[in-house]
Design a protein around this nucleic acid. Structure first.
Lengths: 210, 210
DNA sequence: GGGAGAGCTGTTTAAAATGACAGTTCCGAT
DNA sequence: ATCGGAACTGTCATTTTAAACAGCTCTCCC
């Protein structure tokens, strides 16, 4: 848990995405200079320190003394996206026991790239076109802007709602008049943003011809 | 064809295989020295001349002045589903000019497996959770059952609607009270079922619809 | 038996890339 | 108020790579 679990800063996440996409599109990791060019850094050391930070957090592996010696750990890439089903109270969303299967979907199909898929239960987001059984593509994030559809955890309960922040109060709005908003005073009850919805996949399992 | 069609020598094929495997296993192409190490060459020029030969035959692309600047031509990139955008009147849906791009999605994610993705325009299927800009996964089929969401062509117009057949009359129902049903007498106007919707993909680019 | 091309050795140079050190700015927490 | 971390600028020595030049040994082919 030590290194791997530490969350990335937004900037570090951007760097990591750039690395993933470079590997995806060019079949090789970027050099420090290419990272600089992509982000407008004027010093190669800016890239260097970011890479070190990512390596320290276990997000990448750095091979010393090799050109383009950036490797992505197995978990970070490939094999499609993990599909998370029911989330038990009090445990991390991406805990292995929640991963039902992996779906062969390119994370970069969404922007920003998705980190996992989450199966939605209930019709509380009906008017946002999110139905019971749908899979939403989630981007891990610790914060979000008002109006974004977020995956939030309130007292060990994981829900998908539209975020509305008003000072110390967080409102989690359903997109369905039948469901009342969840209003939380963050001074008394913690609200953890687990991620932001970046897409949706629906499997219309229709019957087949006779 | 001049360069591309020339056959590789056995040795060149070995080199090419090594390059492919290196990309596969290490997520990056080898350097000249790594090629030498793999084959026991004592001179980096051995690798260099092989790479030039492969490039001359079109088996690889060499980028000048870049570390690990070996690229494999992406001819084999057939994976994924074709994404069809606007469909011009009178031409087949899967005509090459309609295919905007290919999406790295496993067709077997849906059941029955999808044949292509179609970008939806308009909100006529809003209450079915299909919004403007959504991609629907389509299974090619010439017929469908009542209640299924179909991709139908009526007089060179391609639409996505719920099918309702009543004798010689076909009703194409929108899922939105603002849109009237399309009622067609098949004895006078042909209706062609192009396919059945088997799924949906939405790319929420950071914002939300509606 | 002479030429052409594949498949190497051996050496060298310049460019690309890594990785180190010394700073600056900003912002949030103690 | 100050400290530390994040996020940079700027410079530079060293190593890794690319890529050139000169040559050598085969085999195949005419």
């Amino acid at each position: 848990m030590s290194a791997r679990s530490r969350a990335l800063t937004p900037r570090q996440q951007e760097i990591l995405d750039f690395i993933s996409q470079t590997i995806e599109h060019e079949d090789r990791p970027p050099t420090r200079q290419e990272v600089c060019a992509a982000f407008g850094f004027r010093s190669p050391n800016a890239a260097e320190t970011h890479l070190r930070a990512l390596a320290a957090k276990g997000a990448i592996l750095l091979e010393e003394g090799r050109a383009r010696g950036i490797r992505l750990p197995r978990a970070e890439r490939g094999g499609g996206l993990p599909l998370v089903g029911r989330v038990a109270a009090g445990s991390p969303i991406l805990a292995a026991e929640h991963v039902e299967t992996r779906c062969q979907v390119d994370p970069a199909l969404f922007s920003p790239p998705a980190d996992y898929l989450l199966r939605v239960r209930g019709m509380s987001m009906r008017d946002a076109g999110i139905f019971d059984g749908d899979l939403i593509a989630v981007r891990r994030a610790g914060e979000a802007r008002n109006g974004q559809i977020v995956i939030a955890r309130v007292e060990d309960d994981v829900t998908v709602k539209t975020l509305q922040r008003k000072g110390a109060t967080v409102e989690l709005l359903a997109a369905n008049p039948d469901y009342p908003p969840i209003v939380v005073d963050t001074r008394r009850t913690p609200v953890v943003i687990e991620g932001i919805m970046v897409g949706l996949i629906r499997k219309d399992s229709w019957s087949q011809p006779r």
